[in-house]
């Protein structure tokens, strides 16, 4: 596909050639290196010039594919797919229920145990037990709220694939 200027040039040069018989090694415009993959000639006289000028802005046509492959390989790390799968599983149904239940119950048991111990220590039965049981209940609710928000954040992080904790080394 000869470029217009290419055609002009050729006819002009061949006119000179015909008139003067000077450029006796010059033969048309099908010259240039071959493409790396295809068998087509890489350059068609001046036609390629404009095309390259444009392709220069983003990536070269010839090595663009290679460049994207290289950058993809550079960004790709050993996957955290297993972690995502497990996290996703933890998000669902029974696992989540069990987690929240254990958080809740553990706080109540801990409150009751503390109260029982303090009562035994001071002989104030049952006041510490009652008070700390209530506090344990509150702590259980707090645990559940915290665990829920943590689970939600995990879900969001898993969807986005960002770390759950940002690294602040300077505190």
């Amino acid at each position: 596909m000869p470029h217009p200027s290419c055609g002009q040039k050729t006819s002009y040069i061949s006119t000179v050639y015909n008139e003067i018989g000077l450029l006796d090694t010059f033969s048309g415009c099908l010259y240039g290196a071959r493409d790396f993959e295809g068998g087509a000639p890489l350059f068609h006289c001046g036609s390629q010039r404009a095309k390259f000028g444009m392709a220069q802005d983003d990536k070269r046509a010839e090595t663009g594919d290679l460049a994207s492959r290289i950058s993809k390989a550079q960004s790709e790390r050993i996957s955290v797919r297993a972690a995502r799968a497990l996290r996703r599983n933890e998000m669902t149904g029974v696992g989540r229920a069990f987690r929240l239940a254990s958080e809740f119950i553990a706080a109540i048991i801990m409150g009751a145990a503390l109260g029982f111990g303090l009562d035994a220590l001071f002989g104030t039965r049952p006041w510490f037990l009652v008070a700390l049981l209530l506090l344990g209940f509150a702590a259980g609710v707090l645990n559940v709220v915290r665990a829920t928000s943590e689970l939600n954040r995990m879900t969001a992080d898993t969807a986005k694939g960002v770390p759950a904790v940002t690294d602040d080394e300077d505190d």
């Binding site: 119950i105 706080a107 048991i109 801990m110 344990g136 702590a139 259980g140 707090l142 645990n143 915290r146």
Partner: peptide, 15 residues
Amino acid sequence: IEFISFLSRPLSHSL
């Protein structure tokens, strides 16, 4: 409450 919550961690963790 926070203290009990903190103490309850090993319990819920193991439970």
